[in-house]
Simulated scan of single mutants.
Amino acid sequence: MKQLWQRLLGRDPVPDAVAEQLAADEAVVATATVTGGGTLVVTSWGVWPPDGSERIGWHQIGKATWDRASLVVTPTVAEEIAPGTELLADVVPRRFRLAEPGTVPEAVQERVNQSIRTRNRRELPGGGAWVLQRKVPGRDGLVVQVRPDAGTDVAAARLLAEGIAQRLPGSP
């Protein structure tokens, strides 16, 4: 009965596995049924995959694309260079085929963009890197992230991140 009312009010139910893990001030923004089963949940803090295993925070998404059938989210892993400065590396993209996408693609794109406060491009050997200042959900302040392009010299990207960290207020 509860699910029927949620649908009548325009809200899809949130899977129990996700609902139990939501932070106190984390709000559900949109949901979509994934082809093959499960629900993709978009919150104010990130994207919960259909298995409900772990949220991918907005600051952890390097790229999100929509091709009218699938939402592809490219998560990143962060290496802390210094407090408040990270070197990112993309991991395997997650593809979610959405039966009825509703507002999910727009919500994801909007929130990934909103997490970025500033962005600058730096050319490096083998390619380049984006230097981003991002808001981390549930935390005060910003984190500086260096996200090198595929093929970019990682050592050069690390040196860039270290140089940025040294120029930040409060660094030794």
Results as ranks from 00 to 15, higher is better:
42 V>K: 00
8 L>H: 11
8 L>E: 12
24 A>T: 15
24 A>C: 06
53 S>A: 15
17 A>Y: 07
38 G>A: 02
63 K>G: 10
37 G>F: 01
21 Q>G: 06
9 L>H: 12
7 R>W: 13
13 P>G: 11
65 T>Y: 07
27 A>Q: 15
18 V>K: 02
31 T>P: 04
39 T>H: 02
17 A>V: 14
65 T>S: 14
66 W>V: 01
49 P>C: 03
7 R>N: 12
41 V>T: 15
37 G>V: 00
32 A>E: 00
30 A>Y: 10
11 R>H: 13
53 S>C: 09
24 A>G: 10
13 P>A: 14
51 D>A: 06
50 P>Y: 05
39 T>Y: 00
23 A>T: 12
19 A>F: 12
43 T>N: 03
41 V>R: 02
68 R>N: 11
8 L>S: 10
22 L>Q: 05
61 I>F: 05
11 R>T: 08
38 G>S: 05
67 D>P: 06
62 G>K: 03
23 A>G: 14
24 A>I: 14
40 L>P: 00
37 G>T: 01
9 L>C: 13
33 T>Y: 06
6 Q>K: 14
32 A>Q: 03
54 E>Y: 11
16 D>S: 15
28 V>A: 03
28 V>W: 06
55 R>N: 06
40 L>D: 00
17 A>W: 08
49 P>N: 05
38 G>P: 02
7 R>D: 10
25 D>S: 13
21 Q>C: 07
43 T>S: 12
16 D>I: 15
9 L>F: 11
24 A>R: 15
52 G>E: 04
27 A>W: 11
64 A>Y: 10
31 T>N: 07
50 P>N: 06
31 T>E: 05
56 I>S: 09
49 P>H: 02
45 W>A: 10
60 Q>C: 09
59 H>L: 09
15 P>F: 06
64 A>K: 05
10 G>C: 07
37 G>N: 01
47 V>I: 13
26 E>H: 05
68 R>A: 10
24 A>L: 12
22 L>M: 09
44 S>N: 02
28 V>L: 09
22 L>Y: 08
56 I>E: 06
39 T>C: 01
57 G>D: 09
29 V>D: 03
69 A>H: 12
16 D>C: 13
50 P>V: 00
10 G>V: 08
24 A>Y: 11
53 S>G: 15
33 T>I: 13
51 D>W: 03
55 R>S: 10
40 L>I: 01
24 A>Q: 14
13 P>S: 14
48 W>K: 05
12 D>Q: 13
15 P>D: 07
50 P>D: 05
60 Q>A: 14
47 V>D: 00
25 D>N: 13
53 S>N: 11
64 A>L: 08
35 T>S: 14
51 D>R: 03
33 T>M: 09
61 I>L: 10
64 A>P: 07
38 G>Q: 02
16 D>A: 15
14 V>W: 02
20 E>I: 14
20 E>D: 14
14 V>T: 11
40 L>N: 00
18 V>H: 03
